[in-house]
Nucleic acid binder design. Sequence first.
DNA 1: AACGTGACAACAATCATTGTTGATTAGGGT
DNA 2: ACCCTAATCAACAATGATTGTTGTCACGTT
Lengths: 147, 147
Amino acid sequence: MRSPEALARRFRETDRKVTPQRIAVFEALDSGPGHSTAEQVHRSVTKNLPTISLKTVYEILRELSELGELVMLDLGTGAVRYDHNLALHHHLVCNECGVVVDVPAHLTDLQLDGVEDLGVSVSTAELVLRGSCSRCNTQDPKQPSNK
Amino acid sequence: MRSPEALARRFRETDRKVTPQRIAVFEALDSGPGHSTAEQVHRSVTKNLPTISLKTVYEILRELSELGELVMLDLGTGAVRYDHNLALHHHLVCNECGVVVDVPAHLTDLQLDGVEDLGVSVSTAELVLRGSCSRCNTQDPKQPSNK
DNA sequence: AACGTGACAACAATCATTGTTGATTAGGGT
DNA sequence: ACCCTAATCAACAATGATTGTTGTCACGTT
């Protein structure tokens, strides 16, 4: 995702108003971790802007995704996640702690040539890995006392 | 998935009762298309067993997935789909008509070696392709009058 | 200073799914 | 065959994420 300033410019260019709520969401996305849920963004934003409604956050996130400034991701974790990493990448969901790890596409090799034999055409490929993240991987080998 | 008879046997072996509701769901799954939603299974089952509740269908489907007889799939289409294809495969969701096409794993080549560099370990890989199915592919090239 | 447009918050509604409860039922041991 | 207990079921309420509705309000424009 781009900077809050760039997003504000983009909103102005597309005849959208740059309101305090929108600025606050831009900044929350910029400073927060990737892959936040709407709920998490809302919690973060309310620190500066206590009256903003969750509905408004949903609307702003939807607009950002319509503009292609972030991507809505359904990783089967209950709520949609809003991903502001615009580079080509995949995701690993940690089975232990639930964290989502970005996996740059260059670390994987994905060949789909054979698929066209089915008569289908593929426009996007979304790879969801499940396993454990590096943190859980190192702590887990039966070292107690981490919960 | 295996035959209704095999599932009945499996249920008896695991100390579950084989009720009319369960038999009806087994048969609906066996004869229906893959990737049905709970709602679709329920609709199909009520043809023979009009009084069965949606809740019961959900329960039976969950038990089947606990036994590994089918797989719960969240393809971002709103409702979970229950997949009774137990072979290793991936899915293509048609952007036009919404149908889910099985993609045998041997048609794709997926190398994940590089991913371990991140310190993570991968237990499963789920590939969701989006595009258009063979049916929409052939009809679509601007031939009107199909809707 | 009135106008119109969009953005907002409060609230209700929706959809898939799960929890609760109380009545019914299946099947092993007598 | 009969009983007993746990399993099963249906009806109903509740949940959680998300979206729809409505009335108000701020802002830039004549």
